[in-house]
Simulated scan of single mutants.
Amino acid sequence: MTRPNIPPADDNLTLPRVPGWMARCTAEAIEDAAFQSGAAVAWLDLTARSPQVPQALWRARLALSAAEVCAGFSGRRETAAQLRDAQHLLRPGDHPGPAGEVFQQWSVAVARPISVMALRQALPAVSAEQIALCLDAIGRNPVDRATAVLEAVLTDAPRAETAALILADAAFATSLGWDHLLPVMALSLRSRDLRMRGDDLRRICHRAVGAAAGQALPMAADLARRASRLLAVAPKLRAKGAERAVGLFLSRDAVAPSALTSFMSDRAARRLCDRLVDLGAVRELTGRDTFRLYGV
Score class of each variant (00 low, 15 high):
1 M>Y: 10
4 P>Q: 03
5 N>K: 10
6 I>E: 07
7 P>V: 09
7 P>L: 04
13 L>R: 02
14 T>I: 06
15 L>G: 08
15 L>W: 03
24 R>E: 04
24 R>N: 14
24 R>Y: 11
25 C>T: 09
28 E>G: 01
31 E>W: 00
33 A>P: 06
34 A>F: 00
35 F>H: 11
36 Q>S: 06
39 A>M: 13
43 W>Q: 06
43 W>S: 07
48 A>G: 14
49 R>P: 08
52 Q>E: 15
55 Q>M: 01
57 L>M: 01
64 L>M: 14
64 L>G: 05
65 S>C: 14
65 S>T: 05
69 V>R: 13
72 G>R: 06
75 G>I: 00
76 R>H: 11
77 R>Q: 11
80 A>W: 06
90 L>G: 10
90 L>P: 01
98 P>G: 07
99 A>L: 06
103 F>L: 02
103 F>E: 04
104 Q>D: 07
112 R>I: 00
115 S>Q: 08
116 V>D: 04
119 L>Y: 11
119 L>E: 15
120 R>C: 06
121 Q>T: 14
123 L>P: 00
130 Q>G: 14
130 Q>P: 07
130 Q>H: 08
131 I>M: 12
133 L>S: 12
136 D>P: 07
141 N>I: 03
142 P>T: 01
145 R>E: 03
146 A>N: 02
148 A>I: 02
148 A>M: 02
149 V>K: 09
152 A>W: 12
153 V>I: 12
156 D>E: 15
157 A>P: 00
162 T>R: 02
162 T>M: 13
166 I>N: 01
168 A>D: 03
178 W>N: 12
179 D>I: 00
184 V>I: 15
185 M>D: 11
189 L>S: 08
193 D>W: 15
198 G>I: 08
200 D>V: 09
203 R>E: 14
203 R>P: 07
204 I>D: 02
205 C>L: 02
206 H>I: 03
208 A>Y: 10
209 V>W: 09
216 A>T: 02
216 A>P: 00
222 D>F: 05
224 A>I: 15
225 R>K: 11
226 R>P: 03
227 A>E: 13
228 S>E: 15
231 L>R: 13
232 A>V: 09
232 A>W: 05
233 V>H: 13
234 A>R: 13
235 P>I: 04
238 R>D: 15
238 R>S: 14
249 F>G: 02
254 A>Q: 09
255 V>A: 05
260 L>W: 00
260 L>G: 01
263 F>H: 11
266 D>Q: 10
272 L>G: 07
280 G>K: 00
280 G>C: 07
283 R>N: 00
290 T>R: 12
291 F>T: 05
292 R>Y: 01
